[in-house]
Design a protein around this nucleic acid. Structure first.
Length: 694
DNA sequence: ATTAGGG
DNA sequence: CCCTAAT
């Protein structure tokens, strides 16, 4: 009967009808786990929150299970697969002739071989095994012959997967590409430029190019399988140049700049759509984020003009990425719209300072008065949120004013390590960087205060006692963002205790001028700080997710009057609480995964798999065609199929996105119809059997 | 963990 | 894509 049906259908690619599997020996793999939640345990949660919001939500989801899970797990799974395969072969009973012609299978195996540049000829054992594998005895049904073939097929399949694995691991092991060089402007450059021309025209580093290894187009070679090399590029991101440094320098030379001149730069600019993702060739491979270790370096003193000062110190802190990540997650539920509102996507810093400089001079409106002046700074800060060190600050002093006012110019990003496949899209790269940065901030930050080259550890000291008065020496005060000790596995060498809480200011709509945050990418070997690499802008223009709210610029304000920072702290906390600060609450907040449109190649693979396996076996489909696409879960595949069917039914005019070849859509409809029918049949038989049993 | 469907 | 209910 089944056979008849099948023949009627005339499609010989279908394999077997869905068979309920009582037991699964193979589990998970590539399943995206979300809902990582972490509680803000750091004392400076506030700051972390702020920073996180500034950054906006991190893009990529933690779908990558990491590159570590190579061979070891692979080996395990292999066996399981074989087991399952055999297991299944014994269970599946309704087979149809057409499918089991050896030729068919063999060719299938060949065409589906996940190994990019291999053919069966190179893998004799596979072929042999596939063909000569003896059928296991113990079949009870009368379709032993069919089972035999089925088994062969299944075995072949598992073989295929084995091969898949080995090749994968191989490539994983050796596929560490390297970005050769990138360039971009340094912040210092910008600063200089800005200083020179009041116009604050900043050359963005958008041009930063990743001149690097070719982006192998694996797709072309084997479009039907989603297996690609696992070559990945590891980027070491750090501030440029070299170890991030720069403490903000409080300066008295307040400059006013044309506010509008720089508004067009940076993230407000329309970004080039990330077409790459749609292209079949560019595989949105899981991004392996190896942000395991982060280095926080800071050199004390050195103003943003590039004047290196003496007394430079460097501090390395081992930063636990996982923890940071959790926090990152927890911050993600920040209202998307909010982020959009403020088109502040970059970590740029040049703008704010220059432009507004609305020096809030009024001694009285510490909070509101500053809002105007600081707001801008905030924007700058916001941009820089993902950084570890304040880059610059400005003091606004007024005679007779016992308050010390200043503004943080920017932050710099500490070293980050990113592991990303070569064929990843720029968009994903940006996302990754964003995530890295966010992770840091999410890990909890605290502020360190450096005065005259020394860390001020005593939080109880007053500014006056410390020497920070309205007539303190300029350039003597600095701030730093430091990893939270609570989250840090390694106590910072030079622990700094002092801190200043973030000062939140009402933020008018401002934008970030130029994506100046320079991310320094270098060849990452383990976690050596290699600063020879290149830099990239990590302004995620293409992804509107980069709209941190300027609200949270970690801007501190020091009042010479306030005995200590305590009073201010209270105020700040209060101010913050008034803002949509929902992070602490929804610690388990999850972020919506980034949208990753299926490429034609993927659709092709999906269709092919479904034709063979049918609908309703998404796990198998996943394993079969998307085993290496870690970001595609079976649910995704199912959803995609759903939309594909829908797409196929609507008129071409109504379709959106990357057009799917009509041919594929036709196959979708055909397969869908077929399997729907099968399913219906299955349903029919069910009650019948039940009836017979009774 | 998977599947199926609605949102 | 997300979320859930039901397996």
């Amino acid at each position: 009967m089944v056979l008849q049906k099948r023949l009627d259908y005339g499609f010989n690619g279908y394999q077997v009808p869905p068979i309920p599997r009582a037991t699964r020996s193979v589990r998970r793999r590539g399943i995206i786990r979300r809902k990582a939640d972490g509680n803000g345990t750091c004392p400076f949660d506030l700051l972390a929150t702020v920073a996180g919001k500034l950054l906006g939500e991190g893009e990529s989801s933690p779908d990558s299970t990491g590159s570590v899970r190579g061979e070891e797990q692979g080996a395990i799974v292999k066996d399981e697969k074989v087991k399952e395969a055999e297991d299944r072969s014994l269970k599946e009973k309704s087979y149809t002739e057409g499918c089991y012609e050896r030729g068919f299978f063999i060719s299938e195996l060949v065409s589906q071989a996940p190994v990019v540049n291999r053919s069966l000829s190179e893998l004799p054992h596979v072929q042999n095994d596939t063909i000569s594998r003896p059928a296991s005895a113990g079949m009870s049904s009368d379709c032993s012959e069919k089972l035999l073939f089925a088994k062969q097929f299944v075995n072949g399949e598992s073989r295929e997967e084995r091969e898949n694995f080995s090749s994968k691991t191989e490539q994983e092991a050796s596929g560490c590409g390297v970005f050769s060089s990138c360039t971009l402007d340094t912040e210092n450059d910008k600063q200089v430029k800005i200083e020179q021309s009041n116009k604050a025209k900043v050359s963005t580093d958008k041009g930063a190019a990743i001149s690097s290894s070719k982006f192998p187009d694996i797709w072309d070679k084997n479009p039907s399988t989603l297996v690609t090399s696992d070559e990945s590029v590891k980027l070491s991101l750090s501030t440029y140049p070299a170890p991030c440094r720069s403490f903000p320098v409080i300066r008295s030379d307040v400059k006013l700049a044309n506010k509008d001149d720089d508004e067009n730069s940076g993230c407000t600019q329309p970004s080039t759509p990330n077409k790459a993702s749609g292209a079949p060739r560019v595989r949105d491979r899981p991004i392996k984020k190896l942000l395991a270790s982060k280095y926080w370096e800071e050199n004390l003193k050195s103003d943003d003009e590039g004047h290196a000062n003496s007394g430079a110190k460097t501090m390395h802190v081992y930063y636990n990425r996982n923890i940071g990540y959790k926090h990152q997650r927890s911050q993600r539920d920040f209202p998307f719209k909010k982020r959009k509102l403020f088109k502040c996507g970059s970590f740029s810093n040049s703008d704010g300072e220059m432009s507004t400089d609305g020096i809030s001079s009024s001694p009285t409106n510490d909070l509101h008065g500053n809002a105007s002046g600081s707001s801008k700074a905030s924007s700058g800060g916001c941009a820089a949120a993902g950084t570890s060190v304040f880059n610059g600050g400005r003091a606004f002093l007024r005679p007779g004013d016992s308050h010390v006012k200043f503004r943080i110019k920017s932050f710099k990003v500490p070293d980050l390590f990113v592991d990303i496949p070569e064929n990843a899209t720029i968009g994903s790269l940006k996302r990754t960087v964003m995530e890295a940065v966010t992770a840091i901030l999410g890990g909890g930050l605290r502020i360190g205060v450096v005065f005259q080259g020394k860390k001020v550890r005593d939080d109880n000291k007053t500014l006056l006692q410390t020497g920070i008065s309205h007539d303190y020496k300029l350039d003597a005060l600095g701030f730093s963002l430091e990893p939270n000790p609570v989250q840090t596995s390694q106590p910072l060498g030079q622990d700094c205790r002092s801190c200043v809480l973030p000062y939140e200011t009402p933020q008018p709509l401002t934008r970030c001028p130029s994506p100046s945050t320079v991310v320094h990418t270098g060849i990452q070997q383990g976690r050596s700080d290699d600063h020879t690499g290149t830099s990239l802008s990590n302004c995620l223009e293409s992804d509107h997710e980069s709209a941190p709210s300027p609200h949270y610029a970690a801007l501190e304000k020091i009042s010479a009057n306030s005995r200590a920072l305590v009073p201010l702290t209270a105020v700040n906390a209060e101010a913050l609480s008034a803002v949509p600060l929902r992070k602490p609450k929804r610690s388990e907040a999850t972020q919506r995964r980034i949208r990753r449109p299926f490429s034609v190649s993927e659709v092709e693979a999906l269709v092919q798999a479904v034709e063979k396996l049918g609908t309703g076996r998404w796990r198998d489909v996943k394993l079969r065609a998307f085993d290496n696409a870690k970001h595609r879960t079976y649910v995704d595949l199912k959803d995609k199929w759903k939309t594909l069917v829908h797409t196929a039914r609507i008129s071409p005019q109504q379709r959106r996105g990357e057009p799917v070849p009509q041919e594929l859509l036709d196959r979708v409809l055909t397969a869908h119809a077929y399997w729907s029918q099968q399913q219906a049949k299955q349903q029919m038989k069910q009650p019948l059997e039940t009836y017979l049993l009774l």
